[in-house]
Design a protein around this nucleic acid. Structure first.
Lengths: 332, 332
DNA sequence: GTGAAAGCGCTAACAA
DNA sequence: TTGTTAGCGCTTTCAC
């Protein structure tokens, strides 16, 4: 492995000049630049990036924390964020934490120890207070969770409004017993959805049943099991529920399957609303009414702000929310 | 930001001793170790990782190249690989290349310039010859593509056999006109599937129609369009096709949707076989017969071998293939 | 057991 | 426009 020393020797210039060529500095004579470039080619010299990072104290890398890459919403979001980072000349580095505090902390350590110039958090197991403590130095951005201190840029879906509109849509169709599914009720975003759910009821003068607020439901299988639990009674006695706000298209499709299993007609006797506008919501029969986030816009805005901050621009911290888009299909 | 110098000063020892404590060296007196640890805590000292990497010429990071994270198979694979890396004490670093040569080359550069200790490639836009050139130094592992030089460890699905068994299953059901969908026919893995497709026909004394071998089909929408193209004729004239080997569950579900659109009975008049055993294959009606890969096993074996190599063990290069598992559901 | 000293490969004043 | 020099923070001989 050659170093700039070798290149300098071969091309008969100093290390500094080689370094200048490497960094596209002005003030290098055409002739010397030429000689250096030739030497580089000849030796197949590759600058040691670690040494550069060490010296410059920048790695040009932006970490992206994601809980589950297998979750279609997050894989899409991670993809969009990565792409934007590249466009702005940064190296996106993805970290999958499985919602695990320890793993997440490891990534924060990397950021603290300057391995990462900036950090984008798309989901976190940490509390707002913990994040507040961490956010002092360096560029940290939250995407997806509506954390609201004033030391972090935050970009997220307006979960409350999205849920509100979805549930309102169900209630407008005459539904009265709507189940609410969540993958993790403790998280702020799920809490926001729940409050949208409640608001929709309140505004129409309706009540909801707390027993129908269910936690830890995230997969097709979860939706299927829960759906079977509720819908198996639907023929024999007063109906337990007549609609579900599923929280994800996977859960929604599980519910739909359960409905079909028990011969419950959708959307005639039962309504389903999903979340994410995943391809799965297109291929069921009927296709699933769902709520879509504006992921692409979010990623674009986010990285633009991040870039400015990294460039040293001092600007007020942002808190930007995006509206969910209700896409009515066949299940409502 | 403090350095070991500061820690040394405070605790009244030399930099070397601090370094020894940091690296859990033996031969540090209990008493000095205690003092150093206290100073570290007091200053909230975090060793500069970049400096360590620079000095030791190791980053402890393993790069994982993935084309599309949004593709459920790859997100699952990437997840499994990341997890295994962690278990072995390495930092997995995911790179999404979108099948783009330039982006892929960027990652290879990182590896070459020692930013990454090893590289796992789950899909590549490079040819075997190009990879051969690159694989000289450092630890490179191919996962998923059956590249076969003897300078790389290779772990992959036996695509040919998997496709062979899938198509055989269709032919055994009496199907005669099977369409073959591929997302990228030029890739070795798709070529292997195609050869399995052909072998199944040959062994049963049947022929296939080259016009039914279709390229660039990967999404639900692609499958739906193609399905409509073929199935719209099925009532009015001699049937164009009576089955499809879809290449992915997404494509398969698009086909199923098209069949339902034209009132073609599945599996009575038309059979569909997908790939990946994605949740989507569970929620359609009927659920989609599919082929599953043993991702978890693959990831485990792979990282184990990688670890040994990184530990300096000299061992023959591996070429290990895994069998696909045919899961018969409702579409065949 | 411990400390002094050298140096990893590079960049960035500073001087020329 | 160029070279000399110092030094980033850490690990690792080597001598004691």
């Amino acid at each position: 492995m050659y170093t700039i020393r070798d290149v300098a020797k071969i091309s008969g210039v100093s290390k500094s000049t080689v370094s200048r060529v490497l960094n596209n500095h002005p003030y290098v004579s055409f002739e010397k630049r030429k000689r250096v470039e030739e030497a580089i080619k000849q030796l197949e010299f590759k600058p040691n990036q670690i040494a550069r990072h060490f010296r410059t104290k920048r790695t040009n890398s932006i970490g992206i924390i994601v809980s589950f890459l297998a979750h279609p919403y997050f894989s899409e979001l991670a993809g969009a964020l990565s792409e934007e980072c590249r466009i702005h000349g940064y190296n996106p580095v993805l970290f999958q934490t499985f919602g695990d505090r320890t793993q997440e902390m490891d990534v924060f350590k990397k950021w603290k120890s300057k391995e990462l110039d900036a950090l984008i958090v798309t989901s976190t197991a940490l509390t707002q207070a913990e994040l507040d403590e961490l956010s002092d130095n360096g560029v940290l951005t939250i995407c997806n969770e509506a954390y609201t201190n004033n030391k972090i840029d935050v970009f997220c879906l307006n979960e409350k409004k999205a849920a509100y509109e979805g549930v309102q849509h169900l209630l407008n169709k005459g539904r009265k017993k709507v189940a609410f599914c969540s993958d993790d009720l403790a998280s702020p975003s799920q809490q926001a959805r729940l409050s949208g759910f409640k608001q929709a009821h309140l505004e129409m003068g309706l009540t909801w049943d707390d027993a129908l607020i269910v936690d830890n439901i995230s997969s097709v299988t979860d939706g299927y099991s829960l759906g079977k639990y509720y819908l198996s009674f639907s023929n024999s006695r007063a109906k337990t529920i007549d609609a579900v706000f599923a929280g994800s298209d996977f859960v929604a499709s599980g519910f739909l399957k359960a409905a079909q299993h028990y011969g419950v007609e959708v959307p005639l006797d039962f309504s389903i609303i999903g979340f994410d506008n995943h391809p799965i919501s297109e291929v069921t029969s009927p296709p699933i009414t769902t709520i879509m986030n504006q992921t692409k816009d979010m990623a674009q805005d986010l990285v633009e702000v991040l870039d400015m901050r990294l460039l040293g621009q001092d600007r007020p911290f942002m808190f930007k929310q995006y509206n969910g888009i209700l896409i009515v299909k066949g299940t409502t």
